[in-house]
Write a protein that binds this DNA or RNA. Structure first.
Lengths: 175, 175
DNA sequence: GTCTATACAGAGATAGAC
DNA sequence: GTCTATCTCTGTATAGAC
């Protein structure tokens, strides 16, 4: 799965070749098919893996003793970071999201993860005193996805994306 | 190009087969290669076509005599509409955006269009009395992209996406 | 569980006629 | 400009041995 995330982050879902994945993982292609039904099965498993990793990050951010406002900023800015692992996860996640437009099998896990993320953000927003936490949560999480994609396509710098997000959070919290 | 947009909207950039495009356009595959260098050339031309269409919509929205605030809402909500043609354009645009992560040839036209859109939105925001129009413009346009993708993956309904966007606009204009 | 070898299909691209 | 026919390569997936 880690090899899959690497390959997807480098070449996209469309560019994922089973042979290359095998090479990246240091095994034969046949072994891939032993563990997964087909190429689509690899993608589904990869999506679940990325989701899981995102959830782990989230839980970590939520388990601190910081103020709600600081927790909220941390949680949302998690995706917009410079470290290789985060960036790869983010690219792979964006790819799988985009693929889900045409691959119904990917939709359910995607929707579930999105909902869980929204809920976490909504809780923090409510604690931080937002007036419309549900709307605000969908607003901010969708914004993170939009900014993330712009970052990956080079349409915006990472710093600028973080500034835009911080600005939007401030607007939601009324300052 | 219209056939290309249809095929991309239905099967994605990833699913665009030259043969299918030819069928959709009612010509032979050889003719595609006569007019375009290769499959990548088709994609680049399709992106330009979608960009142009988006620019036309934008100009139209800007040429009305409405209040800046109403113009702003119209312009941003343009992408989130139910009509087949708009939805197809929006899906194709999203696909091409996602593809640009791995296809450097698509990046320049993408960045140019994004910038033009940002500028238009920024102008309207300034007229409508926003306090930080540049930041707000990038905020709102990136949000539209995020919401648009969620809509296409079925993670949010169209009405809800529109509500979230309207909410975000209101926040930026301080009510 | 894991490999090597290979069958098979699909899709990009071109040749050459009209 | 446009077609039919076809070549070629790449990539998915399987067979069968260890």
């Amino acid at each position: 799965m880690e090899a899959a995330v690497r390959v997807i982050a480098q070449h996209g879902v469309r560019g994922l070749r089973v042979e290359q994945l095998a090479a990246e993982a240091g095994v034969s292609t046949a072994l891939i098919y032993y563990h997964f039904k087909d190429r689509g099965g690899v993608l589904r498993a990869a999506l679940e893996h990325v989701n899981q990793r995102a959830q782990d990050y989230t839980d970590q951010a939520l388990s601190t003793t910081e103020e709600p406002r600081a927790q909220l900023e941390n949680l949302l800015l998690l995706e917009l970071r410079d470290e290789t692992e985060v960036a790869m996860n983010s690219i792979a996640w964006g790819e799988l999201r985009a693929s889900a437009v045409f691959d119904p099998d990917l939709r359910d896990p995607l929707t579930a993860t999105t909902r869980a993320w929204n809920d976490d953000v909504e809780t923090l927003l409510a604690r931080a005193g937002a007036t419309a936490p549900a709307l605000a949560a969908e607003h901010l999480t969708a914004l993170v996805e939009g900014l993330s994609e712009r970052w990956h396509t080079g349409s915006i710098t990472l710093d600028r994306a973080r500034a835009v997000l911080t600005h939007a959070i401030a607007r939601e919290l009324g300052d």
